[in-house]
């Protein structure tokens, strides 16, 4: 299978603090990769680099073979225009830990906003699609609710529907359930499982090892800005080779 995401030598610093150290990482078409690791290890930063919310100092990220943020001509990289960067982003869905729904718009309006104004889809069409998406995430009756009227789990499901409305080729999840009360976690994970079943390529930063074990094709462990180890859920979660992986997993399971 072809590579969906291909990261080579990615290095990122905030000021003098180096957060990503020469990261190499590939995700295949249709693959579901869970990224685990201790707080501050650079998981969010890696995801944010993939859809260019952060700019790396060096290294290359390709999505569907296209270098993110740059175009290659005669052996040189030329910076893309903001418009082209925006276009690249529009094919990558992102789900945030804190949902980041637009509070001044209803659930439905949150979902149709980008399809209408970025893709130029007709409003009626966008609404029809949004209703379908809301139904898929089990919130058909909440289309006119404002985010503040929804529970955390419902908000996150709307956020997933909002990302899917752009028909992304890749979904990035940054700890989508960490801000949720325990009883709301499963409803969000269920939506993500459905997504996995229809073959969406997904990179999921998560502390839900159960989800990783059940859904992921591959689990990668990140520590101090490096991907220390990666393998099938079985290999990595049950019999990790690296001692840091081992101690992290046992600390999460404790």
């Amino acid at each position: 299978m072809s590579n969906k995401v291909e990261i080579r030598g990615l290095t990122k610093s905030f000021g003098s603090v180096q957060v990503l150290h020469d990261v190499d990482f590939t995700v295949k078409e249709g693959e579901i990769v869970c990224l685990i690791g201790p707080s501050g290890s650079g998981k969010s930063t890696l995801l944010r680099c993939i859809n260019q919310l952060e700019e790396a100092q060096s290294g290359i990220i390709r999505v569907d073979g296209l270098i993110q943020g740059w175009s290659e001509r005669s052996g040189k990289l030329y910076e893309l225009s903001p418009r082209n960067i925006t276009a690249q982003r529009s094919h990558i869905g992102m789900v945030f830990q804190r949902f980041n729904l637009f509070p001044h718009l209803t659930a439905l309006e949150n979902i149709i906003e980008a399809p209408i104004h970025v893709r130029g889809i007709r409003r009626a069409e966008a609404i029809k699609q949004a209703r379908q998406l809301l139904e898929n995430v089990g919130l058909a009756n909440k289309q006119d609710s404002y985010p503040s009227e929804l529970s955390g789990g419902q908000q996150q499901r709307v956020a997933i529907a909002r990302a899917l409305a752009m028909k992304p080729r890749l979904m990035l999840f940054d700890e989508p359930t960490s801000a949720l009360d325990p009883e709301l976690v499963s409803e969000v994970l269920a939506v993500m499982k459905n997504l996995a079943e229809i073959g969406m390529t997904m990179i999921v930063v998560t502390h839900e090892l159960g989800f990783a074990r059940e859904v992921a094709d591959r689990v990668a462990f990140m520590d101090q800005g490096r991907i220390v180890e990666s393998g099938t859920p079985e290999e990595l979660l049950t019999s990790p080779r690296n001692s840091r992986t081992k101690s992290f997993i046992s600390s999460v399971l404790q």
């Binding site: 919310l53 418009r83 925006t86 945030f96 804190r98 980041n100 990302a163």
Partner: peptide, 16 residues
Amino acid sequence: KGQGEAAAALGMGGGL
């Protein structure tokens, strides 16, 4: 700040 990021992640440009 998350609002601008969510908009950017949806492919909305700065002005939009």
